[in-house]
Design a binder for these strands. Structure first.
Lengths: 149, 149
DNA sequence: TTATATTAATTGTATATACATACTTTTGTA
DNA sequence: TACAAAAGTATGTATATACAATTAATATAA
């Protein structure tokens, strides 16, 4: 009922089509929850995503192509996003010793601190998701993984 | 396992955080499936979305603000998207008689035919989703609706 | 070793998007 | 009626994205 009401579309050709629309719509809904968290720091969702990946690597560096591989959304301009983050002093870049084509990208202390602040506020977003129990969240995860095969 | 493998991130702070990441990732995965369907027609996801809404209204027109309300992703430039579609002869625009502020946007025959072609190919995408049974797709729909409250 | 192919990253260009603002028409109210 | 407020679109600007082309370094193979 909820989705139909939200987008005012009553019928779908199949349950699978409805699921596709539902995932796209829910993704947009999630984005709306996150955007106002990132904005005070001048970060886009993609930039936040890159920072998270870099924190996962910390204290090791990541190459631009590693970032491209792991980004959640489509990519293409990881280079430019990294440059934006560098201008904010959230990451640093240095030539890779072993392969001078590569660039070592590292999250800075300021980057780590910024992530911590944002993540503290993200907790509230998760609380807003408590309409689902942990078991139900697990079920969503299981089904989405199965969907992608 | 699947998500962890896909983005090479082993631990999440909670099942709800993992679910959030999973939805965002799955949305990107879906986008990848769709993009190559739209590209031959020079359509973006948003433009396709608008065409679908207009087909839902057909033979009635839709105003720009109605389109903005119902679009799945964030919007802002429904005006510009409509203009792009008009340039491709997929929609037509005319001044609304009753309220001269509004614009009546209508899908054209060419627009309807284009949607039909795309939707025929979308069937294959849904077949690719047959890793989930109908019951499981229903369960995803139920849980996502519950998530958004 | 030298030529060729592949890989990593950057840049150019066109389009898409977010956000604020402006413009026109309608609505509401004194 | 006249005037302010609201509604429906459109536009300006900055940023983000998709895709192709370019540059530089490394790997491969004759």
């Amino acid at each position: 009922m909820e989705l139909e009401e939200a987008i005012k579309q009553k019928k779908f050709r199949s349950e699978h089509e409805k699921m596709m629309v539902n995932i796209i719509y829910t993704n947009g809904w999630l984005g709306g929850q996150q955007v106002h968290l990132f904005k005070p720091y001048g970060l886009s969702q993609q930039q936040y995503n890159i920072l998270r990946i870099l924190r996962g690597q910390h204290p090791d560096p990541a190459s631009v192509s590693l970032l491209m591989d792991r980004m959640l959304d489509k990519m293409s301009n990881a280079s430019r996003l990294v440059e934006k983050l560098r201008q904010k002093d959230l990451v640093s870049r240095q030539e890779c010793k072993h392969d001078r084509r590569q660039v070592d990208v590292l999250i800075t202390e300021k980057g780590l601190a910024t992530l911590e602040e944002i993540d503290a506020q993200l907790e509230q977003v998760f609380e807003g998701m408590s309409t689902l129990t942990i078991e139900e969240a697990q079920e969503v995860n299981r089904l989405l993984d199965k969907l992608r095969g």
